[in-house]
Design a protein around this nucleic acid. Structure first.
Lengths: 208, 208
DNA sequence: CGACTGCTTGACTCGGTTCAATATCCGTGG
DNA sequence: CCACGGATATTGAACCGAGTCAAGCAGTCG
């Protein structure tokens, strides 16, 4: 957790309490250009960060889940650079950036903790480019499913709308749907509930 | 510069001097998996960070130029995650990570400076996904040219081999070559020397 | 001068997009 | 409870852009 290593005393230094919030799918957390005054840590759920193309279509540039930090770029003083929207119902901790800055002054450990978050965000971005924006449509969909499963129990995952999946992968809704349907037919994934899938991980890896 | 704000005294604390190195195009700076013991800041030139696909082909996940920091991920203790190879002759400052860690303890400002670098790296990664991995071949090439020009004088740029350009954009060598040739024919770019181009920036933006 | 390497071009194939139709799910109100 | 409406998912067919394979074409360095 982000604030591991902080003392009781450190927390007392915050005048403003930390809010705990629950957002439903589709909820709008913040928009690109908003002044970044809040930081969020994700306790559960899934959030997309998007940017919009001139023609209005979106491209999702990052997916954030449990233990990820939302709005981290605002620490360096700038506005939010993306629009953040909930994909799977999310529990967030919200706290004012001013408090975080204040804590950083008191506690060196927090620097290292934040550094680790930056690092992880960047590694994820690399992986994104490498696994989700390279190769054929099938490879990309498979890699996304494996990525989601990895963050879950390793064998199953919850997906989201085909349109959003397409926006993650740089594919159209139709292509995404076709690939998903094809994977179902081949028995490599099986739907256990609406948007819940069990994966044949070995089979999927072999077919990629 | 990364070490702005450091005192003479801080530098004296380093037993090991900072090396200044010049690498020619094609030079290998480090490999994925190597223990990350050195940090490099780029004074000039261009460096690619690559990862390799199972079939041996590469995908370039980042391009680093003047003022960028190379090997920043090693600060959090891990090995290098990429292979770093020079594209345009590069002047680098090399210094041991141990020294950087030592400096960080003495100088809080360095934390903020590093934070800013992480931030920039992440913004670049987003932009990469958004501009260089989305849309048609022509759009991608144009965006790459504009990106390179932006880091130069805004109106011209130096490119590199078509194969590397393709690896940046997720395109084949042939497609990249075709698009470049087409842009030349349309007078949107003109070759002033081997791999040097003047850009018709407005025309390019309009055509994207 | 010839071999090598990187760039360009051509013809063909294939995969993903596009546009359009149908199907399925789900909430709402009759 | 069922019928309807809207949204999302799936499927189909035609098109087009990028990949593929293969061939020429500079430059460059022995």
């Amino acid at each position: 957790m982000l604030f591991a290593g902080l003392t009781e005393e450190d927390f007392d230094a915050l005048h403003r309490p930390i809010d705990q919030l629950t957002y439903p799918p589709g909820a709008h957390i913040y928009s690109a250009g908003d002044p970044g005054e809040m930081l969020y840590t994700i306790r559960s759920g899934l959030v997309k960060l998007t940017r919009y193309l001139p023609d209005g279509t979106q491209r999702i540039v990052r997916l954030l889940g449990t233990t990820d930090v939302l709005g981290i770029e605002a620490i360096v003083g700038s506005d939010f650079e993306h629009t953040a929207i909930v994909l799977h119902e999310a529990e967030l901790c919200r706290l004012p950036l001013a408090s975080v800055r204040q804590l950083m002054r008191r506690n060196e450990h927090l620097y290292n903790e934040l550094m680790a978050r930056w690092h992880r965000a960047l590694s994820d971005a690399d992986r994104w480019i490498f696994e989700l924006s390279t190769g054929g449509a099938r490879d990309r969909v498979v890699n996304l499913l494996l990525w989601l499963a990895e963050r879950n129990d390793g064998r199953s995952c919850q997906v989201f709308g085909r349109e959003d999946m397409g926006a993650v992968l740089g594919l159209t809704t139709e292509t995404t749907s076709r690939v998903m349907a094809e994977l179902k037919r081949q028995g490599l994934i099986s739907e256990t509930g609406p948007n819940y899938f069990d994966l044949d991980v070995d089979g999927l890896k072999r077919s990629g």
